[in-house]
């Protein structure tokens, strides 16, 4: 049986169809906030894995690829580009049967709130557990100032209220956890600290459930994302969990420079004007626009690509069964530029 990281990478490479180098896969799993990575994530249906292996080392990924290659699961396309072959697909299917991805996992969508959510819930839980068990002396497991301040201001004042809050928090967590695989729920609860014990580190929880670190971290985020999803869909029933993501309105996740371009576009400046004012290259602004198109649902690409072009490009992508820009451009006999193709593909998501 292959290791979790092998299977994970096989999945990513399979989604990328041999159209991206292994660096592309690496940046995606590390969560690099560049236009290219973010576009790739969307284009290849990999957004949910964005940043879900932050501790991955480049050496690890290279070693994993060479193992997969040696085992005959990959076909080499280019020096750093690999495609999953038929045998690889069989192995991948087996792998996914054993290790399906957590249902609510959504790395890109929640990447700005996940860690804050965890800081708040683990500190809140520790404080609440101590106080309902009448021992208020404890050493906080989260040092982060913002989280400490948040818990201080949101902690119920009276013991009566704390007891009710504890009941409510229990009900909310049970509601979320009981719908998840048993070992995912256990992983999450093991990591929490209470009056009777200190929470486990990710590595320790992995060891106790016999999971590799790579799988453990995905299981862990899967539970956090389940909590966030429930809270966002039904704030009433999950009032306490919802409070852990309050003031954390999901801002449209744009990189800083892209945000500036976006603001200028909203003010009605044209592509050309932005280029001149910001003294940026055409290709850079193009990257920004693609990034905006991916992340802002209401953003229309029509001013940049005609409706007709969009239809042609989508048809070409379907008939060539490819996301590769060059293939599509060739198929359309160079009628449209790379920018138009890229923009169309990412907006529709194909």
């Amino acid at each position: 049986m292959i290791r979790y990281l092998d299977g994970l990478l096989l999945f990513v490479l399979h989604q990328m169809k041999g159209e991206r180098t292994i660096s592309g896969a690496y940046h995606l799993l590390k969560g690099k906030k560049s236009s290219q990575t973010i576009q790739d994530a969307k284009l290849f249906g990999l957004s949910f894995l964005f940043g879900m292996q932050k501790n991955l080392a480049r050496g690890q990924i290279e070693e994993t690829v060479s193992t997969l290659y040696d085992d005959g699961l990959l076909e080499q396309i280019d020096r750093h580009t690999y495609k999953v072959n038929e045998k690889g697909q069989d192995v991948l299917n087996e792998f996914l049967k054993e290790h399906s991805f957590p249902e609510y996992l959504n790395g890109w969508k929640y990447h700005q709130v996940s860690d804050d959510f965890w800081n708040r819930i683990s500190l809140y839980m520790q404080a609440l557990s101590h106080s309902v068990n009448s021992s208020m002396n404890f050493y906080p497991v989260i040092r982060e100032e913002q989280a400490q301040k948040w818990v201080r201001t949101h902690f119920p004042a009276s013991l009566e209220k704390r007891k009710r809050t504890a009941q409510q928090l229990y009900r909310e967590l049970r509601q979320v956890l009981e719908a998840l695989p048993e070992n995912h729920a256990r992983f999450f609860v093991l990591r929490l600290s209470g009056f009777h014990r200190t929470g486990l580190t990710v590595e320790q929880s992995c060891a106790s459930l016999d999971l590799s670190y790579e799988e453990g971290i995905i299981v862990f985020y899967g539970v956090i994302h389940a909590c966030i999803t429930h809270a966002r869909n039904d704030a009433k029933s999950y009032s306490i969990i919802t409070s852990f993501i309050e003031n954390k309105t999901l801002p449209v996740p744009l990189t800083a420079s892209t945000r500036t371009t976006y603001t200028m576009l909203q003010k009605g400046l044209s592509f050309q004007q932005i280029m001149e004012i910001r003294r940026l290259k055409k290709s850079t602004i193009e990257d920004h626009i693609v990034e905006i198109a991916i992340n802002v649902e209401a953003f229309s690409i029509d001013p940049f690509v005609s409706k007709r072009a969009q239809e042609d490009i989508l048809r070409a992508s379907r008939s060539t069964n490819s996301h590769r820009l060059k293939t599509i451009r060739d198929h359309l006999e160079n009628r449209y530029g790379y920018f138009e193709i890229r923009l169309t593909l990412c907006k529709v998501g194909v």
Partner: peptide, 21 residues
């Protein structure tokens, strides 16, 4: 601590009665 039942563990931490409801 490893062999815990997560539901019981949560109840214990938060001092919630067995029935939950």
């Amino acid at each position: 601590v490893t062999a815990i039942d997560w539901d019981k563990e949560l109840q214990f931490m938060l001092r919630v009665e067995e029935k939950g409801e």
